[in-house]
Amino acid sequence: MEIPGLGVVTEDEHGSLVSAPVEVPVLGGAFRWHVDGYQDDPAPHEFHAAVKAFLALDGRALEAAAAGVFDYYRHMGEIFGDELDDFPRIAGPDQVWDHVTFGHEVTVTRGDEGDPVFVSVEAECEWEVEHGLQVVFREGARITKVGPYDGHLKNDEDVLYERF
């Protein structure tokens, strides 16, 4: 099977469609894509649109979310900053991405019926090694959730970081 923008995909043992690595400009590298729910979805064109939108993003998308990611960092600093000698010191949102390393996979899924298609990326971050960082792009175009990786695609409200 082929998905526009991703090329040929194969089904893995969990039922996800998996691509070969595809260059992702906004993340600065090549990533394997896991596409969930595509085969049975009544609107696969929405997956195509989300992939296309995500691949068209540049660094401005991450810059727009830096304040939300920095809020997540500060919250974890309130909890652990004084207890850990190696807790990073980040002066502001403009430096927060320097402390994040994206994994090598991108997930595309609709989530619940009636939801838009979301693109989700997991990353390691220096301030929360256990839960890392999850960045979710609604319809592949706009970051709508950042925070610890919990697998959820949206917050209860339209906020970039919601304390857990």
Score class of each variant (00 low, 15 high):
S16E: 13
V26T: 09
P4D: 11
G92V: 06
R163Y: 03
G28V: 09
G111R: 00
L84M: 11
Q39P: 06
A43M: 03
E128I: 05
A56K: 13
D158A: 14
V35N: 06
G81R: 01
P116Y: 05
I90N: 01
Y73I: 04
L133W: 03
G114R: 04
V129T: 12
E78F: 04
H48R: 11
Y161T: 03
V35F: 06
A53Y: 02
R138F: 00
A141M: 06
E2K: 14
D12H: 13
A91M: 05
I79V: 15
V106I: 10
C125F: 07
F31L: 14
E122G: 11
F102H: 02
S16P: 00
V8M: 12
E46A: 09
D58L: 11
E139G: 06
E128V: 08
G114P: 01
T109N: 05
A43R: 08
P88F: 10
H34D: 15
P4A: 14
F31A: 11
Q95I: 04
F31G: 00
G147V: 01
Y38A: 13
E130Y: 10
V51T: 06
S16I: 05
D86L: 09
R60H: 05
G37H: 10
G140R: 01
D94E: 15
Y161L: 08
F137K: 00
A49V: 08
H48T: 10
G7N: 10
L55D: 04
L153H: 02
G59D: 15
G92K: 07
G81N: 03
F70S: 03
P21E: 10
E2W: 07
F31H: 10
G151P: 04
V159K: 09
G59F: 13
D36P: 02
Y72N: 03
D115G: 05
L55N: 12
G132E: 02
A141S: 15
A56V: 12
W127F: 07
G151D: 07
A141W: 03
D40I: 11
G111A: 05
T101Y: 06
V22F: 07
H14Q: 13
H45V: 14
R89D: 13
L160S: 06
V18R: 11
D58R: 12
H152S: 08
R32G: 04
A30D: 12
F47R: 06
H34A: 15
A61Y: 05
A56S: 15
A56I: 12
K145F: 09
G68E: 04
G77D: 06
A141D: 09
F164E: 10
A61T: 07
T101K: 13
P42S: 13
V121S: 02
L62H: 08
K145Y: 02
G147M: 04
A53Q: 07
H131Y: 12
G114M: 04
F118M: 03
F118S: 01
F164Y: 12
E105D: 09
H152M: 04
E126F: 03
E130Q: 13
D112G: 09
A64F: 10
T144W: 00
V146H: 00
A43H: 09
P116M: 05
P93V: 05
L17M: 11
W127C: 06
Y161F: 15
A123Y: 01
E78T: 11
A61F: 07
E126Q: 14
G7C: 12
V121L: 06
P116W: 00
E124R: 13
R32L: 08
L6C: 15
E122A: 12
L6I: 15
I3H: 13
M76G: 01
